[in-house]
Design a protein around this nucleic acid. Structure first.
Lengths: 175, 175
DNA sequence: ATAGCGATTAGATAGATTTCTAATCATTCA
DNA sequence: TGAATGATTAGAAATCTATCTAATCGCTAT
């Protein structure tokens, strides 16, 4: 996303659009462009370097000159493509909700998921009942887990296997 | 062109992209958006008004709220579409050059074009030898035109027909 | 090597832009 | 009509950006 914003900011500038239009016609170099646009070479260089960093143009030395050229692929994207966020984060959220809805009924865990991904989601949900930084005895841990499921032993073990809790001597705590 | 630059500038802003993403999901109103983005209503209003002025979003009052919605067509344009200038001006220039090259040899007009468009280009070229605001006598006019072509009478008449010069009593001047 | 030329960088300045607060406007409902 | 609520505007502060000048860098060719 950050990159796409950067791309838009780059292109939303009159001088840079002029430069791009020149490069659409033919490859060119700093001084020539500066002359065509009545700006100093320093200014053109500033813009070209910025666009090069973003992959909008490419450069290559040829004798005395450094020839800049367009990276044409960039320009086939639609505005919609560029501004639309991938909802990956949201999709994850949605999936999580579905999994939790499936394995919990009335606040109880109905079964322990066998798929690792689903199991981790369920364990993370149970972990919410523990506080960060607090040391729990085994008995306490079992009691809390028991609110969700009979088999507190398996779940306790899974919590550690999943890297959600750690055990040090006789005490447990969240990681 | 100016409009397209404006459109790009509008869209090249993080906050506005957030707003557009919200509106992609559902129509909404100032306070709600402000809340979702943790910004003040004034700020959201500022952005929405700007985008509305550019035709990116539309607004309509509904009860207490002013509902903003996307103008979706905008987002199907490609970046290339947006930044490419129509080269109309340049194409005209090129055409002009070709016409002049064809009808002038060694500074002399070889024949008077019959096509109106070409004739006007040629006449405009000859008109460069006159100064704006100066009143010329018929004899002077003929002399100047004669440098380009034998038939100064026809050309003088054509200059007036084309609206390049005007005649008042015995004097001629550029329009 | 070194002189020359184009490209780049650094630093400064002027101008634009986003955001906020606070005040005002416009509409709805009692 | 008046009170409430959401929308808008005005004005100010902070940030960002494009551009310039002047100095420096990096090739090329003598």
């Amino acid at each position: 996303m950050e990159e796409k914003l950067q791309l838009l900011k780059l292109i939303a500038d009159e001088t840079r659009i002029e430069i791009l239009n020149i490069l659409m016609r033919e490859d060119s170099y700093v001084e020539k462009i500066a002359c065509e646009l009545s700006l100093t070479p320093a200014t053109i260089c500033y813009h070209l370097k910025k666009m090069e960093a973003a992959g909008v143009v490419n450069s290559a030395r040829s004798q005395f000159y450094i020839i800049y050229s367009l990276n044409k692929e960039i320009f086939s994207q639609t505005l919609g493509d560029i501004i639309k966020k991938d909802d990956t984060a949201n999709i994850d959220e949605k999936y999580k909700k579905e999994v939790l809805a499936h394995f919990f009924k009335y606040g109880k865990l109905t079964q322990i998921p066998t798929q690792r991904k689903k199991r981790e989601i369920v364990l993370a949900e149970i972990a919410k009942s523990f506080e960060k930084g607090v040391a729990y005895g085994e008995k306490e841990v079992n009691e809390i887990i028991h609110r969700f499921h009979e088999d507190h032993c398996t779940i306790r073990r899974e919590m550690i296997a999943a890297g959600i809790m750690e055990r040090e001597r006789e005490t447990y705590r969240l990681i």
